[in-house]
């Protein structure tokens, strides 16, 4: 059985995949996951053009500039990943300690860290 921590990480990845698929014209997303002392998630998302990259970058910066709220995460993490209609990216922002974003041509790379 998956640990609660690993379930949370999978939910974060589900929610972000859903965000990229629903809100961009991407046709190629790759993600990697490292479980060590801290958990690192990396997304590489191929986007249409610079305009779309800028729009997505701004949105992600807004989402992840929020500090981690462990007490909110513990009560509400089950909402991430599989809702009928909704966007829970704001909640995902509360479940991550650090983030960084890089851009290489038409590829946006998002790094997330959970401690």
């Amino acid at each position: 059985m998956l640990s609660k921590e690993r379930k949370k990480v999978l939910r974060i990845m589900d929610e972000l995949n859903k965000y990229f698929i629903e809100n961009t014209d991407t046709c190629h997303i790759t993600s990697t996951l490292d479980f060590n002392k801290e958990t690192t998630i990396r997304f590489r998302v191929h986007l249409k053009d610079k305009e779309e990259i800028e729009r997505v970058k701004q949105k992600l910066e807004k989402i992840f500039s929020v500090q981690r709220y462990r007490e909110v995460e513990e009560l509400y993490w089950n909402l991430t990943g599989d809702a009928y209609t909704s966007d829970e990216t704001n909640l995902v922002g509360m479940m991550v300690d650090e983030f960084s974003i890089e851009v290489e041509d038409d590829v946006l790379i998002l790094y997330l860290i959970r401690r």
């Binding site: 513990e74 509400y76 909402l79 009928y84 829970e88």
Partner: peptide, 19 residues
């Protein structure tokens, strides 16, 4: 209470604020 509270969210997907 804690595991039940987290699980009950799935029933209504966050549409009931007093979960």
């Amino acid at each position: 209470f804690p595991p039940l509270a987290a699980y009950c969210l799935k029933f209504h997907q966050g549409y009931c604020l007093y979960n």
